[in-house]
């Protein structure tokens, strides 16, 4: 009986629901038992906390239950086995920290907080890890805008990609009304008057000139 199989039995009183896919074992536990579960795993001989990460199931087909999952990737060097402990949380839920079990959990929990907005109670230094201080939102949430959507900052500032590119090449930004002003990075440029659409149309269609 391997270490992981024994652990799966040990975690059942804590609400542990095991799942296996391609020989990777993960156990989902109730969020109020997460520290106890991780403690059990650590005591069983899993010396290394490899990673903590979040998954947003908002757009996952036929997903039921809570929106987020937080997974703890634990590895036992002595037994050469790996187990994933998972906990499902909703938006706004707070998880207890495990930085008292592994100091290395600090960056991992900060990354989850930064990317998904899941806070960790009792973390000694819970700040954003990677994204800029004034970036609003949590980029790895599935509803975070991507692509041609402006990058949002505090107090209404944002970078509009089309206008930004147009500003770099000295061309007209089109009908967005920003006219490349975003290159200077100031919000007052947003209030600039929209370009004269009729004048632009006339340039494109010389036949209409003089009307």
């Amino acid at each position: 009986m391997s270490l992981v199989e024994r652990l799966v039995d040990d975690l059942k009183p804590l609400g542990g629901k095991p799942a296996e896919f391609k020989r990777m074992v993960s156990v989902t536990v109730d969020s109020e038992h997460i520290v106890a579960a991780i403690n059990t795993v650590k005591d069983a001989g899993f010396e290394m906390l490899s990673d903590i990460f979040g998954i947003d199931y908002l757009q996952y087909p036929q997903h039921q239950g809570k929106r987020f999952s937080v997974a703890y990737n634990l590895y036992s060097i002595s037994a050469n086995e790996r187990i994933f402990i998972r906990v499902n949380v909703d938006d706004g839920d707070v998880l207890p920290t495990i930085t008292h079990l592994w100091k290395g959990a600090s960056f991992m929990e900060r990354e989850v907080y930064d990317m998904f907005g899941i806070a960790f109670d009792g973390h000694p230094d819970l700040r954003k890890l990677i994204t800029p201080e004034d970036l609003e939102g949590h980029p790895h949430r599935k509803d975070f805008p991507i692509g041609e959507t402006p990058t949002l900052f505090n107090d209404g500032r944002f970078i509009d990609p089309a206008a930004f590119r147009a500003g770099l090449t000295g061309q007209d930004a089109g009908l967005s009304g920003h006219q490349g002003g975003m290159r200077r990075g100031y919000s007052q440029d947003i209030d600039m008057p929209a370009p004269n659409i009729e004048a632009n149309t006339n340039r494109a269609n010389p036949n209409k000139e003089g009307k």
Partner: peptide, 15 residues
């Protein structure tokens, strides 16, 4: 992929 999470060594080692 629905989600890609990279366990990067440098980030964790930096601690």
């Amino acid at each position: 992929p629905y989600r890609v999470k990279v366990r990067v060594p440098s980030l964790i080692n930096l601690q």
